[in-house]
């Protein structure tokens, strides 16, 4: 059986989750490898969520928020951006390839962009191979 990566997506409620919803409404195909979890804001995403996801067997993690300047809560996405850069370093020290974590911005109007982003992370993680952290 070919390797199908399991990717956890953390989506903010206002932009990315609605964008993903729009992709569905617009009948745009995006890979089922990404399994979305809704949070109110990308600023809510605690780095422990991401580490937890890797521990539970995820091969990749996608964090998606509103575009800079468009955050429903003014600056939550900037806080996510800061945490993302720090977490990439930590992941590397743990032996997890930092490219398994991806941060992106998808607005509520960008159903097509959501499909593009999910394809990108899926292909990226597929190339990196399985993580085998749960075993």
């Amino acid at each position: 059986m070919p390797f199908e990566p399991k990717i956890v997506g953390f989506l903010c409620n206002w932009c990315s989750y609605t964008g993903a919803d729009l992709a569905g409404v617009s009948r745009i195909k995006w890979p089922p490898n990404v399994r979305p979890i809704r949070v109110m804001c990308s600023g809510r995403i605690d780095p422990t969520f991401i580490v937890k996801a890797f521990r539970e067997g995820a091969d990749g993690v996608l964090v998606s928020g509103c575009h800079p300047g468009d955050c429903h809560y003014y600056q939550g996405n900037y806080k996510a951006l800061r945490r993302y850069h720090l977490l990439r370093r930590v992941l590397e020290q743990f032996g997890i390839h930092p490219d398994r974590l991806m941060l992106t911005w998808v607005s509520a109007a960008e159903g097509e962009r959501w499909a593009k982003v999910t394809n990108e992370i899926t292909e990226r993680v597929r190339k990196l191979g399985p993580l085998h952290l749960k075993d």
Partner: peptide, 17 residues
């Protein structure tokens, strides 16, 4: 809450590993 999101992660990855 952290617990709820952790549970969600566990559930969503129940088939992993």
């Amino acid at each position: 809450t952290d617990e709820q999101i952790f549970a969600e992660i566990e559930g969503i990855l129940a088939d992993a590993g």
